[in-house]
Design a protein around this nucleic acid. Structure first.
Lengths: 220, 220
DNA sequence: GCCGACATCACCCGAAGGGGTGAGCCGGGG
DNA sequence: CCCCGGCTCACCCCTTCGGGTGATGTCGGC
């Protein structure tokens, strides 16, 4: 039989046993290993091919996040599905970043758990409803280029603002745009005045806060 | 009966009918309205109390994203669940940002759909596995506070750096920390020197680029 | 043709910032 | 004990910056 090869990682013996029972009831799934901590899990991953690792996030001797990071590093094809008691915001994000393909809470219904295992094995992801809400909040916060943060600026002033945001001094700007320094100062003054910014320092902050420049946009 | 009050929004008559059948089979759910476009949906939301709006993202006469934004604005208690044929990355993010509580693809199984409706009605979220993967990728990309970008700074200097990053002038810093301006200048000089930054403008850029401050952390 | 918006530049001023040097004070470790 | 690192402050110097005022030229629209 060639079901989805699953390893259980949880320090509670009892929980592992019940998970094994639940998952084995699904004919698509084959529970091949179960261990009590992250260190052992990594050893198993090193030696065997696994499709999915079902891991508790809180464990003695190497926590779930660290173990997840290591597992995805040494076996990128193996998917890690976090399973925990709480949908703690910080842990969710940490786990996802470490490379987890899903995050379920332990109140998941057996059928949904089995389905989640199959989902992540097929390369997609699984999120418990409560966790999804957390993640979505995070997404809502992120980027979003705000138009209007440059309202009222003339094209030339927008150009000047871009250079201000990148930390250019007046003399650098005048060199780059082939202008006299006095002219640059005029433009800078106009920009600061129109946007109601105290100085070029605040211009930089304004740029980042409004997503007018973002991480990694300085290479020039 | 007081089930979850649901409205269906989709330009395909046939799909609305089948959705109605599927959802009505669940005794927790009551399909109270169905309309063919976003504009009509908003009208209904204005006049009736709804728990969940199940909306197609592509529609003539006001697309799903715009309609979602409007609905959450006028009826924050009403949850919007997007339902679409594809898990188009851009649309997913746009929908989430517009305020959607979930995002399902039309290949969802009936039972899962009904469950998703109940999930969002209870305030959590629902993501189709394929969509979850997209979202998780996005989360993985985000910031991540980089430690080490402040290497070598003394505690006092780190504190000074934080204020620099928020655009404080030397005199403001000296007022906030109850120091002489000369002292502040000494610290600022040390910070700029240790981090190899030309001036306070670059200190701000350094802070944002390394995730030492993020969007919306200026309130002080 | 006139006027307003934009861009260009000039000159002046005072404030703020960056750099150098030196010095006193404290606390912990060799 | 002394020395060193961190924190504090002082003075001096020069550059950069922000702000004020005003002048020119060009373009497009009324």
């Amino acid at each position: 039989m060639t079901g989805i090869r699953v390893m259980l990682v949880d320090d509670q013996e009892l929980l592992r046993a019940s998970l094994r029972t639940v998952l084995s009831a699904d004919e698509r799934i084959e529970v091949t290993h179960d261990v009590a901590n992250g260190g052992d899990a990594i050893e198993v991953v090193r030696r065997h091919r696994l499709d999915v690792v079902l891991m508790d996030i809180r464990m003695p001797r190497m926590d779930g996040v660290a173990a997840t990071a290591e597992i995805v590093r040494i076996a990128p094809a193996t998917r890690v599905l976090m399973l925990t008691t709480f949908d703690d915001d910080e842990l969710v994000v940490a786990a996802i970043r470490a490379g987890a393909s899903g995050y379920l809470t332990k109140d998941v219904r057996p059928a949904a758990l089995a389905q989640a295992v199959c989902d992540v094995a097929s390369g997609t992801s699984a999120l418990a409803p409560g966790v999804a809400a957390t993640i979505l909040d995070l997404v809502r916060q992120v980027p979003m280029r705000r138009t209007g943060a440059l309202d009222g600026l003339t094209p030339r002033e927008v150009e000047i603002f871009g250079l201000l945001a990148r930390g250019r001094s007046n003399s650098e700007i005048c060199a780059e745009l082939v202008l006299s320094e006095n002219t640059v100062k005029s433009h800078v003054r106009a920009v600061l005045q129109k946007l109601d910014l105290r100085d070029r320092v605040h211009a930089v902050i304004h740029a980042y806060e409004n997503g007018l420049v973002g991480r990694g946009e300085l290479p020039d």
